[in-house]
């Protein structure tokens, strides 16, 4: 078995090395990545999409299908975790102690350290501002929906750790939870159909100059949906895995 694994690894490695040897030299101006669509993105991307950060332009406009399915993958991960029996089983809620000093979850009685409590509360607003800035300026500077989602999600996880899951759960309104979890795929589907109606192509973006504002609005909707939906999914993944079993 070990020999087989070694042979397999060597064969795969050799294949990769041969493949890499066939690539054009790094930075070669005649390489395929510089002569096909890449050149067009660089030359006309800003004019065509109105998005000044070309990474965002490629991510949301030119390669929208990729990103659509990425969002679906994150959503599917959450669905898979929630489908695990131990993730959704909850112990009966203990009455009368929920209003006491902040406690970590309900599985143990170790009170949260006042130092950690204070520092997380101190830093949380800054983290939130950073996430919003990265979202708001995502079409100009590095950043955007996915980055913002990861930062907001991490903030929600940190708050959940110090305030306890009951308090943290209130960050997400109960009735809207399912909708927020599916926000990314839903927004993409809606925008895709809007694009279909406007351009005749699924997930198409209107290309003419007059539709500039509309195009930008579509991109902003996608960015916000990715950020909020992704953050809720990350926090929910944490809550589900952290649930006492």
């Amino acid at each position: 078995m070990k020999t087989f694994a070694l042979v397999l690894v060597l064969v795969v490695a050799a294949t990769m090395v041969i493949g890499i040897a066939g690539l054009p030299p790094h930075g070669d101006p005649d390489g395929p990545i510089h002569t096909h669509v890449g050149a067009r993105y660089l030359e006309r991307g800003v004019a065509e999409t109105g998005v000044r950060n070309l990474v965002t332009a490629v991510l949301l406009v030119y390669r929208g299908f990729d990103t659509f399915l990425e969002v679906v993958v994150i959503f599917t991960a959450l669905v898979a975790v929630l489908a695990l029996p131990s993730a959704t089983r909850r112990p009966p809620p203990a009455r009368g102690e929920s209003t006491a000093a902040p406690r970590r979850g309900s599985d143990d009685a170790v009170p949260v350290s006042p130092v950690v409590f204070f520092v997380v509360r101190l830093l949380a607003p800054f983290i939130a501002v950073f996430a919003l800035a990265s979202l708001y300026r995502g079409h100009v500077t590095p950043g955007g929906g996915f980055q913002s989602a990861a930062i907001i999600g991490a903030m929600m996880i940190a708050l959940g750790l110090v305030f306890g899951r009951e308090h943290a759960a209130r960050l997400v309104p109960h009735g809207a939870k399912a909708w927020l979890q599916a926000l990314g795929p839903l927004a993409f589907a809606i925008i895709a159909f809007v694009g279909w109606r406007l351009t005749g192509a699924f997930l198409g973006f209107p290309a003419d100059e007059a539709a500039h504002a509309l195009r930008e609005a579509m991109v902003v909707v996608l960015e916000v949906a990715i950020a909020v939906g992704g953050a809720v999914i990350l926090a929910q993944l944490f809550m589900a895995l952290d649930a006492p079993s």
């Binding site: 170790v110 130092v115 950690v116 830093l123 800054f126």
Partner: peptide
Amino acid sequence: LLVVVSGPTTAHALARAALR
């Protein structure tokens, strides 16, 4: 500033968890 605030907090949390 962020590093000066968060580093000792992490050490504190780590030591506290170990003691607990």
